[in-house]
């Protein structure tokens, strides 16, 4: 099977259509990544589009000698950071209350009713601060190694482990709190 790196090198050399295959492979994980961070389906879809537009824009800078996952998630991370900056300018705040109904206001509604525990856990995740939410998302769902996460977020591997533990601790506390109610 043709690798992501090979596909991206084809895109770089002008075979733009090959990006379609990369999109097919990565759009769902990326969507999940953004959905876990924002809790909004429409925003997550837009952010996925932004990632692929940014890939096209910077395709000539692609070297193809590294891990494609690191590359694409680094772009995704930057897209999200830029999104937060823009939102802050428009008085956007990471207010926990805003996330309370996030998972029930969209297509998640039906699924959340299926499993109450998952529903509570998702709510607990949404109450986590953005950075902790992001590191848990990267470590848990995308099965990225700590070394790869450290390169995506620009920190040490040791710091990644500590941050994951802290995020888990806080998530556990929020989850227990929500479970009591």
């Amino acid at each position: 099977m043709i690798t992501d790196n090979e596909l991206m090198l084809m895109v770089k050399s002008g075979d733009i259509d090959r990006l379609g295959l990369i999109f097919e492979r990565h759009n769902k994980p990326l969507y999940g990544y953004f959905l876990n961070l924002t809790g909004k389906t429409d925003i997550s879809e837009d952010l996925v589009q932004n990632v692929f537009m940014r890939i096209l824009k910077y395709r000539t800078n692609y070297r193809g000698d590294g891990n494609f996952n690191i590359w694409i998630y680094r772009i995704a991370h930057n897209v999200f950071v830029d999104f937060i900056k823009r939102k802050k300018k428009l008085e956007f705040s990471d207010n926990l209350n805003e996330w309370d109904n996030v998972l029930t206001d969209t297509s998640h509604e039906e699924e959340s009713s299926k499993n109450e525990k998952i529903n509570i856990l998702e709510s607990a995740l949404m109450k986590l601060p953005q950075k902790k939410r992001e590191i848990l998302t990267l470590s848990r769902y995308k099965e990225l190694k700590y070394k790869e996460i450290s390169r995506i977020l620009g920190c040490s591997e040791s710091a990644v482990k500590v941050r994951i533990f802290r995020a888990m601790e806080e998530l556990k506390n929020i989850y227990n709190e929500l479970s009591k109610n």
Partner: peptide, 21 residues
Amino acid sequence: LARELNAIPEREPGEKMKINF
């Protein structure tokens, strides 16, 4: 907690995202 996190189903994006892409 880790098991439950793992059990969270992966959300599917709408068809609109693909069309837009």
